[in-house]
Design a protein around this nucleic acid. Structure first.
Lengths: 238, 238
DNA sequence: CGCTTACTTGAACTCACTCAAAATTCGTGG
DNA sequence: CCACGAATTTTGAGTGAGTTCAAGTAAGCG
């Protein structure tokens, strides 16, 4: 076991760039002190560590401050299906607010920093107020939409289209958070992660990415992605 | 245009076997008169008719009294991806309660009978009361779960496993409603419907069903399905 | 009974997989 | 800063599951 670890200096909510968005806006309502009071611990997680195991009923929910994660399930035959990726700023596990056991695991893909919120207190806070409940409602509806987009991709698109769709989706999510410089952005996913999300094998992901690069559509190099031809990708992902 | 049509005698809520379940329980709370007041028209729909077109913002939501339907989207290349099947008793389009435009179409696969509820009034009724809102919340969470099950199937299972998983899922849903006689039940889906839901072609669905039949796992004949080996199917669908 | 729709089956093909080895990149410790 | 080992990516050859296209068969339905 290697020596550890960054003694993280917790970010104060008052100084957090994310405090006006997502769950933090809902819980803080513009008041940093109130938000700080709602928040639990803040902590880091190294790559490949599990944040949550299928069947767990965690007593915290989270917000991602930095780093990428994956939500996945493992089949009987041992293969992994990634259901979604967790990006910086995401509020994690709205579906676990009610205290049901998780139907999925969550793993850090890069090292991550997370803010934790006590589950039960947060649930009470949120479901006690129709307007706040509406926020969760929207999150759930968005997750349905995203799942169904994925179903479309898996059911009806060839490998190149699936990759195009996923990359565009991630780019859109990062852009909205100001985390993409135009068409270029961080992209720490390994081929194996892409494969497990898209129903492919790492080898075929490699070949397909090579083809996309050759056709001047998309470049992925050393944990960065560059969209060269948005139109073209969009067409592939119809 | 063929001559029409069954002058349906509307089922009275007081006599409806579904009145104590799902949305009808929520809206009626045991009082048939109250439910009758909440309900709008009741009507029939012939097979292949659209109930809803992608982009629509319908001013009604529905409950299926009888018949099967499909929720689907159509890709640029014209291919159809079925996202889910609507069975008798299902409450349709909880995600449209809020008045957002539909991201999918809905079609009757067999002839259907539906009860309509005015959307806006129902939404107010439901979201005004935390307990009722909770019902919708659960529906949404279940839909997420179902979508993610489908993602698993499409991403990681071969054709036989996908079919096994879908048939077991439908059997489970029908059983809960008392609509399956043990391991035998109505199954009006065409091979094309299965194919469009499972990311396959009708030809391959036919071949795979033949194999399942040969292995004494599952028989589908003239709109009926018989589960011969539940264990075996479950294993295929891991 | 005839027509349409759905299902089955065959042959050729293709996309993606498997298995394996080579090349590259990354992380770590010296 | 370099060197080493581990992880990841690339590439190749062979295979297989599922597709496409087409023809033939069976099953509903008016």
């Amino acid at each position: 076991m290697p020596s550890i670890l960054v003694a993280t200096i917790p970010t104060l909510c008052a100084e957090c760039p994310l405090r006006h968005t997502s769950i933090c806006r809902v819980l803080g309502q513009g008041d940093a002190a109130k938000l700080e009071a709602a928040r639990g611990r803040q902590f880091s997680l190294r790559a490949k560590r599990l944040l949550l195991r299928e069947g767990d009923t965690p007593n915290e929910v989270f917000r991602v401050l930095s780093g990428w994660g994956a939500r996945f399930r493992v089949l009987a035959n041992g293969s992994r299906q990634i259901l979604s990726f967790d990006l910086p700023g995401d509020f994690l596990t709205p579906e676990l607010l009610c205290g049901e056991p998780a139907r999925f695991s969550k793993m850090a893909l890069t090292s991550m920093t997370l803010c934790a919120f006590p589950r039960e207190r947060t649930a009470n806070e949120v479901f006690g107020d129709p307007e706040k409940a509406n926020f969760i409602e929207r999150l759930l509806v968005r997750r349905i939409r995203d799942s169904e987009d994925r179903i479309m991709m898996l059911g009806r698109l060839p490998a190149a289209g699936r990759i195009a769709g996923l990359v565009l989706d991630i780019h859109r999510r990062l852009s909205r958070r100001g985390m993409a410089a135009g068409s270029e952005f961080e992209f720490p996913l390994r081929h194996e992660d892409l494969a497990d999300a898209l129903g492919l094998t790492p080898a075929h992901v490699s070949r397909t990415l090579a083809a996309l690069r050759q056709n001047k559509l998309l470049e992925i190099h050393s944990a960065r992605a560059v969209i060269l031809d948005r139109e073209g990708l969009q067409k592939l992902a119809s």
